[in-house]
Amino acid sequence: MAFLGTLCLILVLTTLAGNLSNRLGVPAVIGELLVGILIGPAVLNWVQLNNLVSIFADIGVVILMFLGGLESNLQLLMKYLRPAIVVATSGVIFPIVLMGLASWWWGFTVLESLFIGVIFSATSVSISVAVLKEYHALSTREGATILGAAVADDIIGVVLLSLMISLLASQGIQTAGSQPALALVLIEQVAFFGGTYVLVKWIAPYLMHLSERLVMASSVTIMSMVICMAMAWLADIVGLSGAIGAFFAGIAVAHTPYRAVLADHVEPLGNAIFIPVFFVSVGLNMTFDHFLHNLGIIVILTVLACLAKLLGCGLGARLSGFDGTSSAVIGTGMIARGEMGLITAQIGHQAGLMSESDYSAMILVIILATIVAPLLLKQTLKRMPKPKAVAEETA
């Protein structure tokens, strides 16, 4: 029952912080992230990232991405698939090169520097989805490109992580747990996307129609949550982020007559409990252990973490025909880091590739980049011509 008190504290503080953020003209997610830092180990140490908080946070990101899928335009996503792949690829190359070179210059070994580059090559688009939703830019061509690039980025991230684990093994460095062969992982992911097509085309419409005939309160909403959670679970099994599975579940359900009803039912559920816990959990990861000792590398890598995605993804967008403002929106939309970066850093730490001090610095840089990302995204969205965004939404 103690968790109920923790949950009450989180909900009260995130509501107040979100209100203050909105009044100050700052994305509400910033206030919620800062609440996590304030009440977590970094400052007051009132709340720790325990199992229950992690479970609620996982559900929160799944619901957030499901809502993102509900509001997305599948035709727009398909139309901008090629630019999304270009953006994702350039957005992976730049962090590996820039942050790898900076780490090597700072004194890390070549293998450690390469590993740090891989840590920051991954994007967590969940934060950006919240900002895009808040500013009604999710169904623009920029939003579609960001979402498509996030999917491609996740696949590239899995491949890079598998290659790094193989490289570590070749150097005699053992990582925790057994890893499936890369070829098997890729086959499973191809099967997942094939199953996603079947879900969108046939399974989701049938299940949603069936749920409407059940004599049960909220049966349609329950069925949508079953589809959402199942897709998130399957995505996790094949090595992708559960958020990606939830996103495609949202797209599948959006192509049924129940889209508006579900948005009205699911969004209050997510915003009332689970999504605030997710944003707070990001802040709970932060500590200031070894902060002064690592201040130099933390500042350098935080700046590069933002610039690498901004320049890399922005360049990819420019090469795909976007103008400067749209390229900046796409670049800033890809800055936030998240679960893949945290997982990769943890693997390096457990393998002894990173000291406790270096590991703390990497986590701190991930959190700082994630906090900066919504602020930069909001500023670039404000520069985007409004008529253009509206036109794309209705296309």
Rank of each mutant, 00 (worst) to 15 (best):
A328M: 10
L114E: 00
G245Q: 08
T15R: 13
I119L: 00
L210V: 09
A272D: 11
L4G: 11
L199G: 02
V215K: 09
I367R: 02
V200N: 00
H255C: 04
L210D: 06
A232D: 07
F94Q: 00
F274Q: 01
E134I: 14
A181D: 12
T332I: 06
L269C: 06
G69V: 11
S126C: 07
M340Y: 13
I116D: 01
Q346Y: 03
S162N: 12
W104V: 03
L167K: 15
L269F: 14
T221Y: 02
V280W: 08
T325P: 04
I93W: 08
V26A: 10
H209D: 07
K79D: 08
L199C: 06
I343A: 13
G333D: 03
W202Y: 04
L11R: 11
G172D: 03
V372H: 02
D289A: 15
S103D: 06
M231P: 11
L186H: 10
V280S: 03
L70R: 14
L67C: 10
A272E: 03
L147D: 11
I55E: 11
V35A: 06
L147M: 14
L376A: 10
A272G: 14
L269Q: 06
H293P: 00
R23H: 07
M223W: 08
Q379T: 11
R141P: 10
S170A: 14
A252H: 09
H209T: 09
L315A: 13
A122S: 12
M223F: 05
M216S: 05
V198K: 00
A391V: 01
G348P: 15
P374L: 00
I347H: 09
P83T: 08
A57E: 05
M286R: 07
G5V: 11
D289L: 10
P374K: 01
V280I: 05
L101I: 15
P27E: 01
H136P: 01
R82M: 07
